[in-house]
Each structure stands twice: as C-alpha cells, then as structure tokens.
C-alpha cells in the first residue's frame, strides 16, 4: 500500500471528541440534555404535583397554601386511622389476601388504593414466578440441547411475537379467551368445562402478563446458560455428581445472573401493567397501573395520580434493591 503523505492524523471532529475536557462535554452532553429535558424534568414536575391538590374543576392547585402530603395520606391512610393502625390494617389485609386459608385478622380494610397496590405486586410476583418456571426449562433446552442452527431458529421464534404490536397481541388473547372463543369452545367440546368465564378474570390478566413478558425471562437466562462452558458439567460428573447434582451445584448457581436479570425485566413491567389488566381484566381486577392512568384521564386527579406513581416507583426501587442484595452480588443497579 502506498504511503499516504498527506496524512495529518485524526480529523477535527475526532480530535474534539478525544480531547480531555471538550471531549467529555461533546460525548456526554447530548444524552444528558435529552435525559434532563424528557425524563428528569417531567419527573420533577410530577413530584411537585404530588404535593398539590385537586381543584373543584380538576385543575392542579400548586400555591404554597395547598402544598402538603395530603395525597400520600389519602393513598395510604383509611378514614380516622392512625399511622400504626394503617400499617397493621395493611399487613393484615395482605395476609388475608395472599396466604391461603387465612382470613384477614383485622376488622378494618385498608384504602382501596393500597389494595390495588398489593394486587399489582401480587400479579407481578406470580407473573415472575410463572415466567421463571416456564422460561428456565425452555432457555435450558435451547441453550443446551438444540443444535447451533436450531438455537438461532428457536430464539427467533421466541422473539417473533414482538414483530407484532403489543396491543394486537393483547387483543388476540382477548379473542382467544372470549365467550365462544377458541379456548372456551375447546374446553366445552372436550367436556372439561362448559360455560366457564375466562375473560375479565384474574386468570385472564395473569395469562396475558405471562404471555407478553415470558420472553424477557427466557432471553437473559438463555444468554447466561449459553455462555457456560459445557466442560464444567462434564467436570462435575467426572467428579461424581449425577446429572441432577451437576445442575444443582454448577448450572443453577452460574445461571443466577440470568435469572435475576430476567426476574427484574418481568417484574417491573408486570407490576405497573396498564393495558393488559385494562383489556383482559374485569372491574374486580383493577391494578395500580390502571388507577394511575385513570387519575390522569377520566378521574382528573393529577396530584393523586402523581403521588401513586411515585409510591409505586419507590416500592419498585425498594424491591429491586432487596432482590439485588438477596441474590448476592449480581450488580444490576
């Protein structure tokens, strides 16, 4: 190759980007401005709103005399209860709701908002667990037992539904589960159940959430399993571990980063879900996501909606922090 005698080193733009201080500004500034204007600023406005009050015509009152924690109190504290009573009532209700065969030990009910919150967390937890139980074996099969060519095909098939719009897929489930729909008629034809209500139940919401989010469990678990050296399992078996032990002591612990990542990816969107419970759930299956959406829409109570959004966010961060601590050293946050 001929020597390039006119070569004067990197161009001007490259030199700017590589400069110690100028480079820092040009590299990071665009993203920083974007995030500040479109993410942090609206978030700050929402936080401000959450301390305000709703006016008689749905307007947001933000004068100094209106500011306070009243929205948060409305959300958490039932009429006339003290803080301690609130905590007890909430916990008691949660026990009654989640623990099988145990009824609510307290006589009072927490606010409907807290009930919605618990229900959403419940939906999120069940979705995460079901996705894990369904997704892990699938990821394991694709990573460990499928040939290289099939792996690509299978992963493509798992991702394929995402080529269609989210809404279209939720409507598809709606059609599947509807009265006189495919599942309904199949159950009747097989004589398993006739005239069973599927749509507009907790089951439909749960089904929809798992259907939509399970790939987000499969993909990270697959990624962590796929990069495991199969010789590790051979070494374990060589040292006297049977197949189950080899999975339990080698594969499972080493795939935990994928499980943690997948759980976070499934848990967050399924707790805050709005479209799925709205379309597939009935009146009794309202979630906190639907509630927040309603406050900014039909109910016209922006301060309460903002407060609920922030409460959900704080709880989510807390849950992730605890999960991340508990899962031992997997650094995701």
């Amino acid at each position: 190759m001929a020597m390039n005698t006119t070569d004067v080193g990197p161009g001007l733009l490259t030199r700017i980007r590589r400069h110690k201080y100028v480079g820092l500004v040009t590299n990071i500034l665009p993203a920083s401005i974007w995030l500040t204007v479109f993410f942090l600023a609206p978030l700050a406005v929402m936080l401000y709103f959450s301390f305000g009050e709703r006016g008689a015509f749905g307007e947001v009152l933000l004068g100094f005399e209106y500011l306070g924690l009243q929205q948060y109190a409305t959300f958490f504290i039932p009429d006339g209860a003290s803080i301690l009573e609130t905590i007890w009532i909430s916990i008691a209700w949660a026990i009654g709701y989640f623990v099988p065969f145990v009824s609510n030990p307290a006589s009072a009910q927490p606010t409907p908002y807290v009930q919605l919150l618990f229900k959403s967390i419940y939906f999120g937890t069940v979705t995460t667990l079901v996705s894990l139980v369904m997704g892990y074996p699938m990821a394991y099969f694709v990573a460990r037992h499928a040939s290289q060519r099939w792996q690509t095909t299978l992963i493509a098939l798992i991702v394929l539904p995402y080529w269609a719009s989210y809404l279209v897929r939720v409507y598809a489930i709606k059609i599947l589960l509807a009265k006189n729909g495919l599942v309904h008629n199949l159950l009747a034809t097989l004589g398993i159940a006739t005239d069973v209500q599927l749509l507009y139940t907790d089951f439909a919401v749960q089904f929809g959430l798992v259907y939509i989010w399970v790939p987000f469990m499969i993909l990270p678990v697959y990624a962590s399993l796929e990069q495991l050296n199969p010789e590790l399992n051979e070494a374990a078996m060589d040292l006297g571990a049977d197949r189950l032990d080899s999975f339990r002591y080698v594969t499972l612990p080493l795939s935990m980063p994928g499980v943690v990542a997948g759980s976070i990816l499934v848990f967050i969107p399924s707790v805050g879900a709005y479209v799925i419970p709205d379309l597939l759930g009935g009146a009794s299956t309202a979630t906190v996501g639907e509630f927040i959406a309603a406050q900014f829409g039909a109910a016209g109570n922006w301060p309460l909606g903002s407060a609920a959004a922030f409460i959900l966010m704080v709880i989510m961060f807390g849950a992730l922090w605890a999960y991340q601590r508990g899962s031992g050293g997997a650094d995701f946050l």
């Binding site: 050296n229 010789e231 590790l232 051979e234 070494a235 374990a236 078996m237 060589d238 040292l239 006297g240 571990a241 049977d242 002591y249 080698v250 612990p253 080493l254």
Partner: peptide, 20 residues
C-alpha cells in the same frame, strides 16, 4: 457406566474449574 460411576478423573484442557 456414566462418568460419575467411573473411578477416573479428568484434567481438562480448559481446566473447567467452577468459577463460582
């Protein structure tokens, strides 16, 4: 016999030490 039923031990080229 399965590998775990044999009285042999293997040293792998990649060592295959358990990283965790």
């Amino acid at each position: 016999l399965q590998p775990f039923e044999r009285d042999t031990s293997m040293v792998f080229q990649s060592y295959a030490l358990f990283p965790h």
